[in-house]
Amino acid sequence: MRLTLRVWRQAGPDAPGRMARYEVTDVSPDMSFLEVLDTLNEELTLRGEEPVAFDHDCREGICGACGVVVNGQAHGPERTTACQLHMRHFADGDTIDVEPWRAAAFPVVKDLMVDRSALDRIVASGGYVTAPTGSAPEAHAMPVPKEDAERAFENAACIGCGACVAACPNGSAMLFTAAKAEHLGALPQGRVEGDRRVLAMVETMDDEGFGGCTNTGACATACPKGIPLPSIAAMNRGFLAAARRAR
């Protein structure tokens, strides 16, 4: 296959950016999208140009490091991560636009690489169970209904890639925050500090400059791990109940 890539190039956080055009030939349909960028970078290096910077690591869809907007869609047209997006979903001769995640809370570091540390700060503000090492009771001391464990898992599957923020018209991190609140809120171990958690995480989310939720559902559509949209409603309920109890 032969493809034209239009890639966002930006030298640094404060530098101006632009879309640059590259032709990539010999693309195999079995390549992943990131392998196309690898190939492009090898060529650029040998031509004496600066390769395209992009985040990536595990290349099997679980670490959450990669993430680019492909033709206006976070992680591209398939419901998976960019590293698991294969070129057989594109046609020979296609022109493909590649942009970084766009959000005030995700400043561009370079080219397609953004700073997602705001997500880490949301978790640090309350996305944990306070259980210092050694203090744990015997694991079977507290049975957890299978349904609750499954619901916790479904939300815990979030990989923190930020596609929800990138896809949301408001750059909102509600799906990410809700996934953590619901993961821990579904379990008896996490319920104890549930009020503090949800209030702190929502406040941090706002402080970091993420937008609000307008319930468009774009986040859940883009999520490579299928975090369910109703988690947002559940977190809202938890937040309002916690706010009521706060006096």
Binding site: Y128, V129, G134, P143, K146, A149, G190
Partner: peptide
């Protein structure tokens, strides 16, 4: 054995049986 206790306390959603045990 202690590792499992620690992780469960942290909220790691291990697979469970219908009776609620691991």
């Amino acid at each position: 054995a202690e590792i499992i206790d620690q992780c469960v306390a942290q909220g790691v959603p291990f697979a469970r049986e219908y009776g609620g045990l691991l």
